[in-house]
Computed example of a mutant assay.
Amino acid sequence: MDADEAMRVNRALNKMSKLYREAKARKLAALGLHPGQDVLLWLLAQQPEGMTVSELAARVGIEPPTATRSLARLESGGWFRREPVPTDRRQVRVVITEAGHALLPAIERAWIELAEETMGEAGEDELEIALSTLETANDRLRLIVGEGPLADE
């Protein structure tokens, strides 16, 4: 790859990252959420018994204080509740509520709409090539930053 191609790749990836985040923010704002909060709620919904803040942070790939701040912003929506962890008084388990479960279809709908709008009229073959290329690039970036190719997103 020459310098011109490298610049083109860098510009495209940087621009896509910024634009995708902004488009996602607009869709989620209609639900009263900020980017990242959708993922926290979705992950909580996958664990009926809930998760500790540390477990949730590890699954998302963020630091526990960042997860704590995001959860504090989410708390007013009544989308989860905190329960004590009987074996460790320092920990709390975060459990999604019925209100949180009720929000999941709208979150998933926003994700689908954004994916469809982003990919436009791409055919099945084009979509597969794009996804394969992006997944390979993600795997390479995970190795570069030391997460390994199978780390959770």
Results as ranks from 00 to 15, higher is better:
55 E>R: 15
70 S>W: 14
98 E>L: 10
61 G>M: 10
13 L>M: 05
34 H>P: 00
23 A>E: 04
69 R>L: 15
58 A>N: 09
65 P>N: 08
106 A>I: 02
6 A>I: 03
5 E>F: 00
26 R>Q: 07
91 Q>W: 08
101 H>R: 13
44 L>R: 08
101 H>M: 12
53 V>F: 08
99 A>D: 08
61 G>R: 15
76 S>D: 00
39 V>E: 14
64 P>H: 13
71 L>S: 06
70 S>T: 09
7 M>W: 03
63 E>C: 08
74 L>A: 03
5 E>Y: 02
24 K>A: 05
102 A>W: 05
77 G>N: 06
56 L>M: 12
103 L>G: 04
56 L>H: 12
102 A>F: 05
45 A>T: 04
49 E>R: 09
100 G>Q: 05
66 T>C: 10
84 P>M: 04
100 G>C: 08
74 L>Q: 05
49 E>Y: 00
59 R>H: 15
106 A>P: 01
18 K>I: 10
31 L>A: 08
36 G>E: 11
86 P>V: 00
92 V>P: 06
46 Q>L: 13
58 A>K: 15
66 T>V: 15
41 L>G: 03
6 A>G: 00
93 R>G: 02
83 E>I: 02
56 L>Q: 09
78 G>T: 05
106 A>C: 04
67 A>S: 11
88 D>E: 05
47 Q>D: 08
110 A>Q: 09
35 P>S: 08
69 R>P: 07
50 G>C: 06
47 Q>C: 11
39 V>C: 13
16 M>I: 03
30 A>L: 14
37 Q>P: 07
25 A>Y: 06
81 R>Y: 01
104 L>K: 14
57 A>Q: 11
38 D>W: 03
20 Y>A: 04
39 V>W: 12
